[in-house]
Design a protein around this nucleic acid. Structure first.
Length: 569
RNA sequence: GCGCCUGUAGCUCAGGGGAUAGAGCAACGGAUUCCUAAUCCGUGUGCCGCAGGUUCGAUUCCUGCCAGGCGCACCA
C-alpha cells in the first residue's frame, strides 16, 4: 500500500540523507513475513557512511525505537536490513476502505491520460481455420487491451486480418482445380482448409502450382474482377466463422482493418521510402539494405511487382500513427516474427519517424505438439472451436457431479470452461512455448482459473447467506482483522494496483494471473481458519468486509484477463 | 553458417543482484456435527544446463560453450 511506503519514506529520509521517493524505491518485501512487511536494505549506505550494513540497520533501528507510524508499528534490524512491521488494525481498515470506496474501479488508475494505444491482436489468416495457435494472440492481446484501458489509456483493438497475400492465390488455384460449390456452401471454412492443405500436398509434386498461385495473387492486386470476386467470397465466409468464436469469447474489435485495407496506400508508401533514399533495386525487386544495422534486407516489392507482408505492415504502421497519434502501438504477434518487426521498426526509424520507438512487438511462444510444431499446411492443427467446446463440456460434467442443484449450469460451465482455456494461456510467461496436451487443458485443479473462480463463488455464497444489513461499511469492524490469515490476505489485496501496472509495463498479463492465484490461496487459508458467519458481532461484520473486498479484487482481476467470475459454480 | 528466445524439483512452471530458491501436478498421510472438500494441512525432492568473469554478494548481470526452439530475399 502506497501510504505505508510513503510513511516509511518520510520517517527514514532525514536519517539516511535520501529523498523520501528514493527510500520508497529501495524498499523491498522480505522473503518471510516474520521479517516484517517492508525492508530497507542498508547496503547502499555502507559506502557513504563507511560502516557495515548490519551496523547501519542497528543504528537506524535505535533512532526509531520509540517511534511508530499510523500504519507501521515497529522497526527492527535484522542483518543488513531494517524491517518495518505494519500496524494491522489501521492498515487493514485503510486497505479495505480503498477497495470498498473504489469498487469495480479498485486497481484502476489514470496513468494513461486517455492517450491512444492501438493493439494489433488475434489477426488470423483468412481462409485458414482458427487453430489453437491463434488463441495466444487473441487472449493475450485482449487482456492487454483491457489492462491498458484500466490504466486510463484508450485501447483500440485492431484485428489485422491476414486477408491479402499469396495464400489467396493458392486458394483460388485450388478452387479452380478441385473446388465443388456444394461442399463450399456446406461447411465453408473446413472446406477451404481442406483445399489449402491439398494445394500444398500437390505443390510438392508440381512446382507450377506455386507460380500459378503467385500469378493469381498478382491479378488480385491488379483488381482483376474474377480474382476479386473469389477473394470477397472467401473473406466473407471466413469472417462469419470467426465471429462465432469472438462472440463466445466476448471479444470485440474497434477495427477490422486487415492487410487489404492498406492496398491503396502501398504505392504512396513505397514512394515515400524511395524519397528517403534508402531503397534500391536488386535482382528486379525493390529492397532496403539493413546490413549496416545488422539486419537482413527488407523486400518491399517483388520482381513481378506484387507487394509483400512487410510493405502492408509498413503502410499500416504509418496509418495507425496518422490516425491515432498513439502513445504506444502494440503488436501481439508470435515470436517467430521478431525479425520481421525488428526490420519494420528499423525501417520506420530510417524513414525519420521518431515515433518508431513507441512501436512494440509483444511476442509469444508457439503452441506445439510433443512431436513437433503445428502446421496449417500439413493439416496438423487443433481447432480452437474444439478446444473450447471440450473444455466447456468437461466443466459441465464436473458441475453436474459437484453441484447438481445449481440453477444455471450452462453459464457456469461456460465461465469455467472458457476461463480454463484462457487462463492456461495467460498464466505462464508468454515467451515460452507451450506443449499442447489435452489432459492439461481439461484439468481444472491446482493453479487454474477454476481455483480462482471457486474462491469467488464461495464468497458470493457466504454473502448471500449474510443478512443485507451486515453488508454496510463499518469503520470499527474493519479494524478487528488482526489474525495472521486476515492480515496476510489484506496485504495481498493491497497489491492489486501495482500488479496491474506491472502487467502493463511488461506487457505480461501473466503477472496479474499469478497474483490472482495468490489471492485465492490466501482467501482459502483464511476461509479454513476464520469462520465468517458463525463469528460474533463486529468481527463478523469485519470479516464480511474482508471477503467482500476479496471478491472485488478477484472480480476486477479476472475481468482484466477476460475471464468471468461466476457467483455460483 | 549467422541472429533471437528458452534451460530452476520426477513432470508443468513461478521467481529474480541480496536474508533459508518457491508453487501446482504426481505420491503418501490427515482435516467435513460448521460459510460449496473444484478446498485446506502435513511429508520428500534441487551442481537454478556447464565453465569463466563483474560484485562485498550471482540462480538472477556479462562472455564462452552445450542442449532445445524459432528465424535469416521474392510466404505471412
Amino acid at each position: 500500500m502506497q501510504k505505508l511506503k510513503e510513511e516509511i519514506g518520510h520517517i527514514l529520509s532525514p536519517l539516511v540523507d535520501l529523498d523520501p521517493a528514493e527510500v520508497v524505491n529501495l524498499l523491498e518485501v522480505p522473503p518471510e513475513s516474520e521479517y516484517g512487511d517492508y525492508a530497507f536494505p542498508c547496503y547502499t549506505l555502507a559506502k557513504k557512511l563507511k560502516k557495515a550494513p548490519p551496523l547501519i540497520a542497528v543504528d537506524l533501528a535505535e533512532k526509531l525505537s520509540d517511534k511508530k507510524g499510523r500504519y507501521w508499528s515497529k522497526a527492527e534490524p535484522r542483518g543488513p536490513y531494517l524491517n518495518f512491521y505494519l500496524a494491522p488494525a489501521a492498515y487493514g481498515r485503510e486497505v479495505l476502505q480503498q477497495v470498498w470506496d473504489q469498487g469495480d474501479k479498485y486497481g484502476h488508475t489514470n496513468l494513461g491520460l486517455g492517450r491512444n494505444v492501438p493493439i494489433d491482436y488475434s489477426s488470423p489468416n483468412i481462409a485458414k481455420p482458427f487453430g489453437v495457435g491463434h488463441i495466444r494472440s487473441t487472449v493475450i492481446g485482449h487482456s492487454l487491451y483491457l489492462i491498458f484501458k484500466a490504466l486510463g489509456y484508450n485501447s483500440i483493438g485492431i484485428n489485422h486480418l491476414g486477408d491479402w497475400g499469396t495464400q489467396f492465390g493458392k486458394l483460388i488455384v485450388a478452387f479452380e482445380l478441385w473446388g465443388e460449390e456444394e461442399k463450399l456452401e456446406a461447411d465453408p471454412v473446413d472446406y477451404l482448409y481442406k483445399l489449402y492443405v491439398r494445394f500444398h500436398q500437390e505443390a510438392e509434386k508440381d512446382a507450377n502450382l506455386d507460380d500459378e498461385a503467385r500469378s493469381w495473387f498478382k491479378r488480385l492486386e491488379e483488381g482483376d474482377q474474377e480474382a476479386v470476386s473469389y477473394w470477397n467470397r472467401f473473406r466473407k465466409l471466413s469472417l462469419e466463422n470467426y465471429a462465432l468464436i469472438y462472440d463466445l469469447l466476448g471479444i470485440e474489435f474497434e477495427h477490422y482493418h486487415g492487410e487489404s485495407h492498406y492496398n491503396e496506400m502501398l504505392d504512396q508508401v513505397i514512394e515515400l521510402v524511395k524519397d528517403k533514399g534508402i531503397a534500391k533495386e536488386s535482382e528486379g525487386a525493390l529492397i532496403v539494405d539493413l546490413e549496416q544495422h545488422g539486419l537482413p534486407p527488407v523486400m518491399l516489392r517483388k520482381k513481378d511487382g506484387a507487394t509483400l507482408y512487410i510493405t502492408r505492415d509498413l503502410a499500416a504502421a504509418i496509418y495507425r500513427h496518422d490516425t491515432f497519434d498513439f502513445a504506444l502501438s502494440l503488436y501481439v504477434v508470435g515470436a517467430e516474427q521478431v525479425l520481421h518487426f525488428q526490420q519494420l521498426f528499423k525501417l520506420l526509424e530510417l524513414m525519420g519517424f521518431e515515433w518508431a520507438k513507441n512501436c512494440v512487438h509483444v511476442p509469444f511462444g508457439l503452441i506445439r505438439f510433443k512431436e513437433g510444431r503445428m502446421s496449417t499446411r500439413a493439416g496438423k492443427i487443433i481447432l480452437l472451436e474444439e478446444v473450447l467446446r471440450r473444455s466447456i463440456d468437461m466443466a459441465r460434467e464436473i458441475i453436474e457431479e459437484k453441484n447438481p442443484d445449481l440453477d444455471d449450469k450452462e453459464s457456469a460451465a461456460k465461465a469455467v470452461g472458457l476461463g480454463a482455456v484462457r487462463f492456461g494461456d495467460l498464466s505462464n510467461d508468454r515467451i515460452k512455448n507451450i506443449e499442447f496436451d489435452w489432459e492439461k487443458v481439461l484439468d481444472f485443479s491446482g493453479e487454474t482459473a477454476a481455483y480462482i473462480q471457486y474462491a469467488h463463488a464461495r464468497i458470493c455464497s457466504i454473502m448471500r447467506k449474510a443478512g443485507a444489513e451486515q453488508k454496510l461499511w463499518n469503520d470499527s469492524a474493519a479494524t478487528l482483522l488482526v489474525e495472521e490469515e486476515e492480515t496476510v490476505l489484506i496485504k495481498t489485496l493491497a497489491m492489486l494496483p501495482d500488479k496491474i501496472i506491472a502487467s502493463a509495463d511488461n506487457y505480461r498479463p501473466s503477472i496479474l494471473a499469478r497474483y490472482l492465484i495468490d489471492v485465492a490461496r490466501e482467501f482459502n487459508r483464511f476461509y479454513h481458519n476464520c469462520p465468517v458467519l458463525s463469528s460474533e458481532g463486529e468481527l463478523q461484520q469485519g470479516r464480511l468486509l474482508l471477503i467482500s473486498a476479496t471478491r472485488q479484487v478477484i472480480a476486477n482481476g479476472l475481468a482484466l484477463l477476460g475471464i468471468v467470475a461466476p457467483e455460483e459454480m
